[in-house]
Amino acid sequence: MLIIGERINGMFNDIKRAIQERDPAPVQEWARRQEQAGARALDINVGPAVEDKVGAMKWLVEVVQEVSDLTLCLDTTNIKAIEEGLKLCKKPAIINSTSADREKIEKLFPLAVEYGASLIGLTMNKNGIPKDADTRLALAMELVAAADEFGLPMEDLYIDPLILPANVAQDHAPEVLKTLYQVKLLANPAPKTVLGISNVSQNCQDRSLLNRTFLAMAMACGLDAAIVDACDEELMATAAAAEVLRNRTVYCDSFVKVFKSQ
């Protein structure tokens, strides 16, 4: 189970300010804290407010790599920013993300192949996020076909079936779970799956409870990676337990500790 820490994101005020002032301290502090908490990759998102997205991405990649060797997950819709970020990454990164729109596919799949990066493919297109599992799967299939077409190894493709907040679109969660399970049947070897977990609880009460419960449910459906609040200890313990219970790792008495340290 790949835990991707969500915290280095310009949506958060401390990171937004750090980017504006080019102050590495808060960014590096979150890199360290998330790594210590058990994240094995770090999402890097410049946020919506920054104008120079390319410059901000390059700066973030550099300052994070000064303190962490973790895989970086470059999270922006700006393709130029992704490419400039990829050039600076010391190890293969994860591109977050492409939609299932043809013009995006044609740019981002070759980019992933060129830089040996993994690629997150969202099951959405210009029509938005589908309501049901079948439409999500149809879009996932287009992404799987694109991996074949452009020569991206299937295990480097992460399908994100996109979860919406429980207080807005409650009916989506079961469809997402169904999609997660069925994505694995689209190809052999199968693509991987990923979710931005915290989205399920946007503007809800008891966010941590919703997040970790949904994470466990998604893991039961085969989820391979999750962008999460890695500093949420209960969520990380839940992930550790789910990893044992779905038989992906051998049980031992220190299973929580081991999950966070490996």
Binding site: V250, C252, S254
Partner: peptide, 10 residues
Amino acid sequence: DINICKQLNI
């Protein structure tokens, strides 16, 4: 016992 094997290594 593989669980004890792993735990002992830890």
